[in-house]
């Protein structure tokens, strides 16, 4: 496949440059989503009545296709990276909140009672007991959000070359060079698999008490997000 890495100059980036851009555009929103999701989830755990409406709103937000989301934002943020990253952060938030709420709630009552009886305050109990026990489910949620984010950045190509590796797809059509599309798909998929592997590794480091190999299957992810994990794989 000739010219596989021969990136057209109008993309203004080398192949590694596109990868770096893609990583940034995909992972910053996930990080932002996580930072927002933690307090929001804790609020939902404390105020039980809040969870149902939050779940309703997230389900609706989640259903809105990324392209529709992007173009509505153009009016406010222009054809920039931010226009791509804001919806991705929202999707991440939407995946992570139920994952964290369900995980924190699923910590057995006896465990919490034991912690309280030992004199843990609410903050310490949250940080040292609830969050670590919920960690596998939170990471399962992160895996779904990260994979989705990496896949969706490419759609940014449609709103004026904001798609990083996705811009290769536009170039493939424009210059009739299918190998660029192959490059885009393979690189994006490889990136997603790599990030997924890193998250699995992170889980093993964070939760040495869990048996190896568990929590990695589809069940953990499905349980974590309360919705089928593959829903976000594509938009």
């Amino acid at each position: 496949m000739n010219g596989f890495f021969d990136i057209p100059s109008d993309l203004q980036h080398s192949w590694p440059g596109l990868i770096g851009l893609h990583v940034r555009e995909a992972l910053l929103p996930v990080a932002a989503g996580l930072l927002l999701a933690l307090p929001l989830a804790q609020l939902c755990v404390r105020l039980r009545w809040l969870y149902a409406p939050v779940l309703g709103v997230t389900t609706v937000l989640y259903a809105i296709p990324s392209l529709a989301f992007f173009v509505v934002l153009i009016d406010y943020t222009g054809q920039t990276e931010l226009t791509v990253m804001i919806p991705l952060a929202v999707y991440s938030l939407v995946v992570l909140v139920p994952a964290i709420v369900d995980a924190v709630r699923s910590v057995p009552q006896e465990t919490l009672a034991a912690a309280t009886a030992m004199g843990f305050g609410p903050v310490r109990r949250y940080l040292q007991v609830q969050l670590p026990i919920a960690a596998p489910a939170v990471i399962a949620g992160l895996r779904v959000a990260t994979a989705s984010s990496i896949s969706l950045v490419s759609v940014g190509a449609l709103i004026g070359n904001q798609g990083a590796l996705g811009n290769l797809l536009a170039a493939a059509q424009k210059y009739d060079r299918p190998e660029l599309a192959v490059n885009s798909v393979l690189t994006t998929a490889a990136l997603a698999i790599l990030c997924d592997a890193l998250l699995v590794l992170l889980r093993r480091v964070l939760t040495p008490w869990m048996p190896r190999g568990s929590g990695g299957g589809p069940r953990a992810a499905a349980a974590a997000s309360q919705r089928p994990e593959a829903e976000v794989a594509a938009r």
Binding site: S151, L169, D196, V232, A233
Partner: peptide, 15 residues
């Protein structure tokens, strides 16, 4: 499931 998550839908479509 893992493979499906990694596949970029838009990329696959164009490809």
């Amino acid at each position: 499931a893992t493979a499906a998550r990694a596949l970029p839908s838009f990329g696959l479509l164009v490809l």
